[in-house]
C-alpha cells in the first residue's frame, strides 16, 4: 500500500507540473505557528482578548517564550504551552510570525484575516 501511495503521489505531482508553484512545500514553521492560532488568531491576528503575534519581531517572540518556559508560573496557562516546544521549534515559530508583517498575510488569501470582526462584537 505504501508503494502504491508513493507512486500515486508521484503521478499527481507530475500531472501538476503545470501548476508546480501552487503546490510548493509549505514554509518552515507554518504548521507549528498555526498551533498558536487557536488563541492568538489565524496568522497571528487575534480577534479579541489575546496578544497579536503577527509582525512582532523574531527576538521578541523567541525571548518571551524561552523565558516563560524557564519560569513555569503555575497560574499561567501560556507557560505550559511554551514548555511544549524545543528552543529550535520556538525559533521557527518566532521567525514565521515575524515574517508575516503586521497584516499577517500568508498563503494565498492571507489578507482575508485582517479585517475580521468577531460576530459578538
Amino acid at each position: 500500500m505504501k508503494t502504491y501511495r508513493k507512486t500515486l503521489t508521484g503521478a499527481l505531482a507530475l500531472a501538476l507540473l503545470g501548476a508546480a508553484s501552487a503546490y510548493a512545500a509549505p514554509p518552515a514553521g507554518r504548521l507549528l505557528a498555526a498551533q498558536c492560532a487557536q488563541c492568538h488568531g489565524t496568522n497571528g491576528q487575534a480577534v479579541s482578548g489575546m496578544e497579536k503575534l503577527a509582525g512582532e519581531s523574531e527576538r521578541e517572540i523567541y525571548n518571551e517564550l524561552i523565558e516563560m518556559k524557564a519560569k513555569l508560573k503555575p497560574d499561567e496557562i501560556m507557560h505550559r504551552q511554551a514548555a511544549g516546544y524545543t528552543d529550535a521549534q520556538i525559533r521557527l515559530i518566532a521567525r514565521y510570525y515575524a515574517s508575516l508583517g503586521k497584516t499577517g498575510s500568508t498563503g494565498s488569501r492571507g489578507s482575508s484575516s485582517t479585517s475580521r470582526k468577531s460576530r459578538d462584537d
Binding site: P74, S118, D120
Partner: peptide
C-alpha cells in the same frame, strides 16, 4: 511539564475564557 490545571478558579480566568473561545471560534 505541559499537563496542568489552574491552581484555583479565578475571575481573571473567567474573563480569559471568553477571549479564548472567541479566538478559537474565529480560527
Amino acid at each position: 511539564n505541559t499537563l496542568a490545571e489552574a491552581p484555583a478558579p479565578t475571575a481573571g480566568h473567567y474573563k480569559d475564557m471568553f477571549g479564548w473561545a472567541k479566538n478559537l471560534f474565529a480560527d
